[in-house]
Nucleic acid binder design. Sequence first.
DNA 1: TTAACATATCAATAGATATTTATATGTCAA
DNA 2: TTGACATATAAATATCTATTGATATGTTAA
Lengths: 124, 124
Amino acid sequence: MAEEIAMHDGESPPSALTDGTTGLHDGELQSVAFLAKSLSDENRLRILLCLGRGKKAVGSIVEELGLSQPLVSHHLKELKRTLLVTIERSGPFIYYQLSDPAILATVRDLNAVAQNLLATRKTF
Amino acid sequence: MAEEIAMHDGESPPSALTDGTTGLHDGELQSVAFLAKSLSDENRLRILLCLGRGKKAVGSIVEELGLSQPLVSHHLKELKRTLLVTIERSGPFIYYQLSDPAILATVRDLNAVAQNLLATRKTF
DNA sequence: TTAACATATCAATAGATATTTATATGTCAA
DNA sequence: TTGACATATAAATATCTATTGATATGTTAA
């Protein structure tokens, strides 16, 4: 009866039996979720792919993608927060660049998996 | 060299591992965002890794991860909607399994990228 | 200084979603 | 049928976030 467990802020929901085969502990799980969430927005992906062709100032991204400047700025802030991009100031310009080209390979891998799932869905 | 050409159509992989041209059209961008969003929850990742060791009934997952049954059911529904898992009924049991083992490799890749970003962050 | 430009931030809104509690559906055995 | 079990669904809440429009901050040139 008296089995109430009051979960307070942000610690382990389950008991810490780790997830075995692929062997990711809680911190790594958190990192993966963190990164995946950053990659889960179409406009952020557009920005990342755009930056895949070299560092660019905010205005260039705005112009190239046709998104509003505050929106691009917002997503760039998020991409910086999640360590996917770095900045480099030059006068009034702020150039953003990918912090790791491996990010592009990851996006391509995600696309490959997604397309394969869509192609071979045998679920009815 | 020419500027990168935007849209490629469905089948041919752009073969861009070293050149920066990761041309994804809107549908692919949507798919990537879709998949990434499904991978952006810690508990869903736990479930996926759990299923990486074979098909399991809901109760097993609940017990193994220490999450509530409705929560696990909710996440399984989401994973099924995003094509990451498939089901197989057997009596009152419903067995869930990964629809593609490549998903595990993708999670591992995400972790590798994330850990690398954390390790080599030169921001401050 | 002022003016013009580049970028960031603020405030408000709207929609998504993770979680919990409670309840419903479905299956099988006795 | 009843009862026990496995799973799904409903409803409520709370949190998060993408987007927009307006405004602020900061940099350079005149």
